[in-house]
Nucleic acid binder design. Structure first.
Lengths: 196, 196
DNA sequence: GTCTATAATAAGATAGAC
DNA sequence: GTCTATCTTATTATAGAC
């Protein structure tokens, strides 16, 4: 609603976010961006320098949103295991893949520091944030003292990103759920085993 | 060497394997395939129906190769932990990503059953093969009896695929290694903890 | 700010000579 | 089997009127 109140520039950015998610950077054309946003040829080049500039803006926006979503899970109450579970078990549109992680495979994104940096920063932050939570849990006796928070955090994020790859390969969300369950079981075992 | 003995058809398939790895399906043009292979315009369309047909052949070839490589690790000697370690710690060109898994993000591959099926079959086989190894280990007392071999197998493959995503996002192989180490630590803890 | 030309280059393939 | 020509449609913009 209030569509008329959404600026052309804003509609272009939102269209770019969608198309980058669906088709990546190399798979998204200026024409497709114009069609999806409803903006004309001239409008797009008035508001942005071109496809690259618009994509840059859209990727940064998506990165901010993803970070906020993750913080909602990780900053909640409960113990470390519960917060990591909240992150891992959050409802996801598994077959569409990660809005940000999917772009890591795009050759033009990987090769361009301006496009790649939001990915680097966001996943770097996410691994750090998960490591904080896990370290809190370790210090509080939730995990065995030997647990390496940073390595474990990387494994948690990797399972999610890899889960998307397996699910999209199979055209079925099941492998994503399996991978998450597999990791959670290991994590829970590592939490309870050393406490008799 | 003996380059003259490699047929044009073969050179086209190998060029397609490389370009699909580097640029995906949507990012690979017929012209690029011709340039990379050294084949002329007419030759490509003589040997294949077009880009789609050539890509289909190349993806199937890559899938076979990936399967053979994985079996070399998983079919070796040693216990379950050692064979899973062999798979996880195998030397990889981390920043280039997985030759097959990267294609899961390509919109045209995901949408086309002919192009997607080799991914589905290969990752399905890989998860099954890892589950066999893990189940062997569980039955042999290497792991806690509660370990779910299929879920754990999915987690193992997901960590590798997600590790590629994190490494490419960071333009640095370190997150891949961390994720693998994080998972291995959990797996080892699950193997030794219940054995006093 | 938006619109309609205009344009050089590439995509993806077909036709037919050699 | 390979080569050159040809074709249609997209890509990625720029120019300038409104």
């Amino acid at each position: 609603m209030y569509d008329a109140l959404v600026s052309t520039s804003e509609k272009l950015v939102e269209a770019a976010q969608e198309l980058l998610w669906e088709r990546g950077y190399v798979g998204t054309s200026p024409k497709a961006l114009q069609r999806r946003s409803g903006a004309g040829q001239g409008s797009m080049y008035h508001h942005f320098h071109g496809k690259h500039d618009l994509a840059r803006t859209a990727i940064r926006r998506t990165a901010e949103e993803l970070r906020a979503t993750a913080e909602a899970d990780l900053g909640g109450g409960g113990g470390a295991v519960e917060r990591v579970e909240a992150y891992l078990l959050r409802e996801r549109d598994v077959l569409r893949g990660c809005r940000l992680g999917g772009l890591a495979q795009d050759p033009d994104v990987a090769a361009d520091p301006e496009l790649r940096r939001p990915l680097e920063e966001t996943f770097g932050w996410l691994r750090g944030r998960l490591a904080e939570v896990l370290e809190e849990g370790r210090a509080g006796g939730e995990f065995t003292a030997a647990l390496d928070a940073r390595d474990t955090a990387a494994a948690v994020v990797a399972v999610v990103q890899g889960g998307y790859v397996l699910a999209r390969s199979a055209a079925d969300p099941a492998p994503f759920r399996q991978a998450v369950e597999g990791l959670l079981a290991l994590l829970r075992a590592s939490a309870t085993a050393p406490r008799p």
